[in-house]
Structures are given as structure tokens and as C-alpha cells.
Simulated scan of single mutants.
Amino acid sequence: MSRESQLREEICRIGASLYQRGYTVGSAGNISARLDDGWLITPTDACLGYLDPAAISKVDAGGEWVSGDKPSKTLVLHRAVYDNNPDMHAVVHTHSTHLVSLSINGVWKDEDVLPPITPYYVMKVGHIPLIRYARPGAPEVAAQVAKIAGSVRGVLLERLGPVVWESSVSKAAFALEELEETAKLWHLAGGKVEPLEESALQDLRDTFKARW
């Protein structure tokens, strides 16, 4: 099986997993993966739970639609990540409930939507800034992401949900799940959890190379 075929299968597998466990609903959300000659991205208005590997959109290095169904309207946002972080090979975006709620009801800080309340959040996710609301696919959002794509693993789009990037589709999904779980914990605790102390954060940096 070619690398492209493997990526198509992985996108479908991860999409179905996220959908079945309620990380996204309906036709919300999108997933992309970097190829040597462009990108794969889920089609516009596709349901992540029922993706067809053959229908996944392929675009070339210039962003032109090559094959498959019409690409997601967020293609420009995904490209902003890839163009500004060569180590990242996948982007996952969902409308996860607790994170969308967090963006509506108030984040911890604009530069850190959630405090460092668990070690795995610190290690697997790190700093996640808030991007203020703009319509889905708005170019100004991509422009903002382009400026920070090399220094963080993701962003939270106000009223739209998280966008997370990593070295593979699976790793991006895992980081997104950790982000959503932390938002859930924050909600359950009424936003009253104390962050990990600086000494604990430094221990995670020293031991696991955590980026916090």
C-alpha cells in the first residue's frame, strides 16, 4: 500500500473514531495530512464518521484541487500550518463540546485557554491560544495561525473549536483529545483548579522536554 493510501485510511479511521465518541457531530470538523506533492484534506461538509478514502480531496503544493471531492473550506488554515511548520504532517479540527463552550463562556487567558492542571496536558498539548471569532474559512484566521504555527501545537477558534497539528494524524487526534478532556475537567471543577506549581512544571520540562 502506498503512503498516500495509508494516509487516506488513517484519516478515515481517525475521523470515525472522533465522530463515534462525540468529539464532532454532523458534518463539522476536518482532517488533513501532508504529502510529498501536496496535501490530503477531508471534503467540504463531509461527516468525519463516514469518510470514503477515495473521496478525500487531494490538493497540489500550490493549493490547487487535484482529485477527490471538493476540499474543506478551511484548506487555507491548514496550509498556514504546513507552510510555517515543516515538522508538522497533520491537522485535525473538531467542534468539541467542552472547548467550544470554553470559548463562549470565557477562557483562562487569551494566550493560554486552559491552565496547566495535569501533567499530560502540559506534555502532550502545551500552550493553546484563543483566536477570536471569524467566519469558517476566513483568511484572517489563517494569517493569525501562520504567525504562531511554529511555536504552539494548536489554537482554539472562538465558537468553532480546536485546531491541532502534529507529526501524524493519530498524534494530532490524541493531542486534541487531551485538550478536550482538560476542558471537560476544568468545567467539572467549576474553573477552580489551581495550576501546577512552577517547580512541577520545571520537572516536566527537565524530564520530558515539555514545552511550557
Rank of each mutant, 00 (worst) to 15 (best):
A146Q: 02
A183C: 10
S101G: 13
V141E: 06
E177T: 12
E158M: 12
L157Y: 05
P162N: 04
K109T: 11
P162R: 00
G137L: 03
P129D: 11
R135K: 13
G154E: 08
P162T: 01
A183V: 10
A134R: 09
I148H: 00
P129Y: 10
A183S: 13
S167P: 06
E140Y: 07
V169H: 03
K109A: 15
Y133D: 06
E158G: 00
V145R: 04
L156P: 01
L160W: 04
Q144I: 05
Y121W: 05
Y121G: 00
V155K: 01
S167M: 12
I131M: 10
R132C: 12
H127I: 14
P116E: 09
A143G: 05
E177W: 02
V100A: 10
H187K: 15
V100T: 10
T182C: 14
P116T: 04
W108T: 05
T182I: 12
V100I: 11
E111Q: 11
E166A: 15
H187D: 15
I104D: 00
E180Q: 09
K184A: 15
P139L: 03
G161H: 05
R159I: 09
P115W: 01
W186Q: 09
G154V: 09
A142F: 05
H127K: 14
V141N: 01
I131F: 03
P129G: 12
I104K: 08
V113I: 15
V152K: 06
R132Q: 13
S168W: 02
V169D: 07
E111F: 10
E178D: 09
W108R: 10
F174Y: 14
R135T: 10
E178S: 12
L102K: 03
K171V: 00
I131A: 10
S151P: 06
H187N: 14
V145T: 04
V141C: 06
W108G: 11
R153N: 13
G106M: 09
L179E: 08
A175P: 08
D112H: 12
L114Q: 08
V107E: 07
V145G: 05
E140V: 12
V113E: 07
Y120H: 14
E140N: 05
I131R: 02
R132H: 11
K109L: 15
V122H: 01
E140H: 07
W186H: 13
R153Q: 08
R153P: 03
G126W: 03
P116M: 12
I117L: 13
E180K: 08
A172E: 05
E140C: 08
V169R: 06
E177H: 03
L156I: 10
L157Q: 04
T182N: 10
A134S: 11
A146F: 02
M123S: 14
A183P: 09
Y121F: 15
H187M: 15
R153E: 01
